[in-house]
Design a protein around this nucleic acid. Sequence first.
DNA 1: CGAGTCGTTGAACGGAATCAATCGTCGTGG
DNA 2: CCACGACGATTGATTCCGTTCAACGACTCG
Lengths: 202, 202
Amino acid sequence: MKIKLLDDLFSKSAPMERRDYEAGDPVFSQGDRALNIFAVVEGQVKLERYTIEGRSVLLHAADAGESFAEASLFSDVYHCNAIAAMPSRINIYPKDHVLGILRAGPENAEMFMALLASQVRVLRTRLELRNILSAKERIFRYLLLAASPENPEVLISVPLKQLATELGLAHETFYRELASLEKDGIIERNDKTIKILRASII
Amino acid sequence: MKIKLLDDLFSKSAPMERRDYEAGDPVFSQGDRALNIFAVVEGQVKLERYTIEGRSVLLHAADAGESFAEASLFSDVYHCNAIAAMPSRINIYPKDHVLGILRAGPENAEMFMALLASQVRVLRTRLELRNILSAKERIFRYLLLAASPENPEVLISVPLKQLATELGLAHETFYRELASLEKDGIIERNDKTIKILRASII
DNA sequence: CGAGTCGTTGAACGGAATCAATCGTCGTGG
DNA sequence: CCACGACGATTGATTCCGTTCAACGACTCG
């Protein structure tokens, strides 16, 4: 979820706390009273849940720019642990204040609902991409989706390595297949953009 | 998103339409005025977007029990095509009526936000599972998450084949690894349940 | 200038997909 | 009522391709 939009919405007329964490610092723990929702400004936060026999399983890794624990707005306690995975800076929005804003008027609530619904859409799409086995095909479809219908040029604003992770590929594979796509004249790479030359990899 | 909860929320004091579609029938098309949101009762609906050169890319396949086009509540037009992938029955909730309900009181809006937030949580978790390369490990973590901390028994209410798809595995692989987990004494399988015997696959 | 990271390519391995075949069950219609 | 088809569950054999390990150049930043 775009952190800026969230900020615009939740920092309205209110103090928002920004705190720094060291790697390993807990942000909150499973069972704690849910008092805040959060957004990662810098760093990464791991969300994990304790399961049977004290074992913990990773639920999500929230990277810079992501919000997390939104569901805690509607729950009394946190249902997982949040731990800074590296030195991190985190925005903290008090739950009661946020709920106040959401209740203040339908516009605010609807803005938040729109953010959530769009997040759902993005996640579903990302999940669908993962159903594509072939690395080349997955990368290509990603590019098709990232390009607008009118403009076949995709702006790459994050390191390719990170893109690879987002697509669920080893970065070596990603580089390789990008190179292969370019060699086959399907895409053209420039400094920070990738241009789709043909809308088919055949 | 649980269709029942949605129904409870959106069918309040209002007519909800239920319509049947044949395979290939369009539910709505990219660019159409967004007038409804939907839920699949039976069948499957494919959501796809037109990209450059008239090519379309699958965004999501909504199965029975899922809602779709929630984001259209906050958009003037649909941004993708929805097509029945097989004979399907679909609930249709008129957007203006739904928005009316959401504006009627904060409880309704908050119920919907809670649904969306929980959906986000589920999708993030599912995505995180996909980051696990090893089929056995992925299946095992899934089971750990599906089991409650107190009760190591997981109720399997859908065909295993479908579970395999959800986990992003070929069903053959899924059966194989389940068998292997059982052989190693890590799980115990009964008719409709799987019991976790050890919280580690080592 | 050195440490760290990104980007890139090569070689080898391993494991999941795929193709294939069988069995059991359930529903259906002749 | 039984034959048949459809589908889920299961196991075997084979193939393929993405991961992994490794090494290197380019670049940035302190």
